[in-house]
Design a protein around this nucleic acid. Structure first.
Lengths: 266, 266
DNA sequence: CGTCTTTTTGAATACTGTCAATTTAAGTGG
DNA sequence: CCACTTAAATTGACAGTATTCAAAAAGACG
C-alpha cells in the first residue's frame, strides 16, 4: 500500500463539516422549537465546510434548517424516497446503505457528527440509499432546493456545494480502492484509522473510542464477513496494535496500525 | 445478487452524455481550428445530459469548448494537476486511475464517447486521478469556471452539473458494491453487461465489441488479478455465454450472463 | 525474423468464507 | 432477582476461491 493511497483514505472522511458540539438549549428560538438560526448555532462557521463566509451564514438563516431527533434504529430516509433534503449530522452516528433483494444489507458509509448525508439523491431526484441511526441522534435537514436557490445567487455558495459533492466522489473512490486491492487486515486498519482521524478532527479522542456499529455492519462496509472482522480484531490485539473489548477500541500502537496499511508493498 | 442491484450497476454508466457521432469537418470554424460551436456540434442536445434546454446550448457556445486530439497512450491530465477543465469524450476510450507509490496502477474507470471525465477534481481544485487514452481519441475540454459562471446565471444549468456529479457518486457506489460482495464471475459479468449497455446507448452493437483495455487493466478495475480475469473469460466461453478472441468479445447468451449476476442469491 | 508484450493455462499456496459450537451480554417475564 | 430467550461476538475446522509462481503460446512491432 502506497503512502499516497493511505493518505487518500485517511484524509477523506465522509463529507466533513468540522466539529460540532451539540447546540445548547438557549440557541433555540422559543417560537420555532424545531428550528434554529444558523448564525446562533454552534455549527456556525463550522457548518458547510471549509471557508464559508459570514455572509453565506446569514443567507443560510433564511433557510431555517429544521432540526430533528432520530431514535436509535430509526430510518432517516429510505432508498427511493423523494430527495428533498440533505442532512447534517449534529450528534449521533448513522449508517447508509441499501437492502438487497435477498434480504442482506449493503452498508455504504458511516456518518458521525459534523458530516453530511444524502448527496447521492441529487442524481435521480430520489435517494439512492437509506440512512439509519445507530444510536439516538440529531440532524439538521437542509432543503436542497433552497441550497440551489442560494447557489444561483452566490457563486461562493455554489462552490461549497460542488466541493461537497466532489468530495463524496473522492470518498467513494478511496473506499473503492480499499475494496479492490486490500487484505482483511489492511481494510480493517484503514477503517479504524479513518474513523480515528474523523473523531480527532471533531475533538474526540483519536486513540480510544466506542464503535456504534456491529461486526456485521463493519464487514458489509469493508466487503468482509463478520467472522473475518472479528478474527482480524483478535489478530490486531495479539499484535498489540489494539485493545478490543467488544465495541470499545483502544489503539495502542497507531504507528503499527499505519504500517499494517503499508505492509502490502510485497 | 438482487435484481435491484444489478439494475443499479447496469443503469449507471459513467456520467453519460448520450451518443455522439464524431463531428464532421465542416462543423469547425476556419478561424479557430480547435474550437467548435456547440450549437453546430453533433453533440448538440445530446451533450450535457438529459434535458438541456436550447437556451442552455446557446449559452454553451459562449464557452467555445476547445477540442483536442489525444493519441493512444497519452495522458489527458494527471493526478495533482490543477483542475481547470472537465472533459467530454467525443471519440475513443480512456481509462482513469492513479499510480500507487509502489508502481502498480489502480484503474478507477473507463470512459467512452459521450461520457464525462474529471469531475473528481472539483473537491480539491486539482485532479484526484489521471486520465489516459487507450486508443487515439478526441475530447472537448470544458472550462469548469465557465460552467460555474453559467450555473450562477441559470438554475437549470446548475442542476445539470449537480446531477452529473451526483451520478458519478452513484456510479462509484455501484462499483463499490461490486468490489465488496461479488465473485470474480459476477464482477466480470457486471463489467461486460455495463459496457455493453453503454455501447448500446451510444448506438453501437451491444452484443459484439472490442475491448480497448488489457486484462491487467480490467483486473485492476474489478479488484482481480489479470490471470483471474483471463480464467473467467475462458470460463464464460466454456459456459457458452461469450465468444472471446483476445479483446474481441461476442456475447452469445445475454440472458445467461445476466443470470450469472443474479446467481449469487445462495 | 526476432523481441517484447499480452494472454492463456497449470499447479501449489494462501486467504477468506462457510458451518458450527461456545461465550458473553442484554433483555424479558415470571 | 433469577431463569429464560435473544442477539452479538469469538473461535475452530474445513471448504472454496482467488492469488502466486511458472511456463508456454500468440500476437504486435520494429
Amino acid at each position: 500500500m502506497s503512502l499516497a493511497m493511505s493518505l487518500a483514505i485517511l484524509d477523506t472522511p465522509a463529507v466533513a463539516l468540522r466539529f460540532v458540539p451539540p447546540p445548547s438549549a438557549h440557541a433555540r428560538t422559543p417560537v420555532a422549537p424545531l428550528k434554529t438560526l444558523c448564525s446562533a448555532c454552534h455549527l456556525r462557521e463550522l457548518c458547510l465546510p471549509c471557508g464559508m463566509a459570514g455572509s453565506d451564514v446569514e443567507r443560510l438563516d433564511g433557510l431555517m434548517f429544521a432540526q430533528r431527533r432520530v431514535k436509535a434504529g430509526d430510518t432517516l430516509y429510505r432508498e427511493g424516497d423523494r430527495f428533498e433534503f440533505i442532512y447534517a449530522v449534529r450528534g449521533g452516528t448513522f449508517k447508509t446503505g441499501l437492502e438487497l433483494a435477498d434480504g442482506r444489507e449493503q452498508v455504504s458509509g458511516f456518518y458521525i457528527g459534523g458530516e453530511l448525508m444524502g448527496l447521492d439523491g441529487v442524481a435521480q431526484g430520489k435517494h439512492a440509499s437509506s440512512a439509519t441511526a445507530l444510536e439516538d441522534a440529531q440532524i439538521c435537514a437542509i432543503p436542497y432546493a433552497h441550497l440551489v436557490q442560494l447557489s444561483a445567487a452566490n457563486a461562493g455558495m455554489q462552490h461549497i456545494v460542488s466541493r461537497l459533492m466532489s468530495r463524496e466522489i473522492v470518498r467513494e473512490h478511496s473506499l473503492m480502492m480499499l475494496l479492490g486491492s486490500m487484505s482483511a487486515e489492511e481494510r480493517l486498519a484503514a477503517f479504524l484509522l479513518n474513523f480515528s482521524q474523523r473523531l480527532k478532527a471533531r475533538g474526540y479522542s483519536a486513540g480510544e473510542f466506542h464503535l456504534r456499529m456491529s461486526r456485521a455492519e463493519i464487514g458489509s462496509y469493508l466487503g468482509l464477513k463478520l467472522e473475518t472482522v472479528s478474527r482480524t480484531f483478535s489478530a490486531f490485539q495479539q499484535q498489540r496494535l489494539l485493545e478490543v473489548d467488544k465495541r470499545h477500541i483502544r489503539i495502542t500502537d497507531m504507528g503499527g496500525l499505519s504500517r499494517a496499511l503499508e505492509s502490502r508493498m510485497h
